[in-house]
Amino acid sequence: MKVTCEECGAGINVPGDVVKGEIVTCPDCGVDYEVTEASSSGVTLQPAETSGEDWGE
């Protein structure tokens, strides 16, 4: 499905098997969005947390 990027207005292709919590990136401006809701009827995105100092593996 296609979602519009809030930052630049480009279309972001969100894969059909996307799950809540996943990150999708705008192919045009590179802004990361977190999937906050995902169902067969659609997805909701919000700008993702930026990387924290204790993030990693």
Binding site: V19, K20, G21, E22, I23, E34, A48, E49
Partner: peptide, 13 residues
């Protein structure tokens, strides 16, 4: 337990 779903978390689930 997660706070971001990476490829790994999807694969594990």
């Amino acid at each position: 337990i997660y706070d971001r779903v990476r490829w790994e978390e999807k694969a594990l689930a």
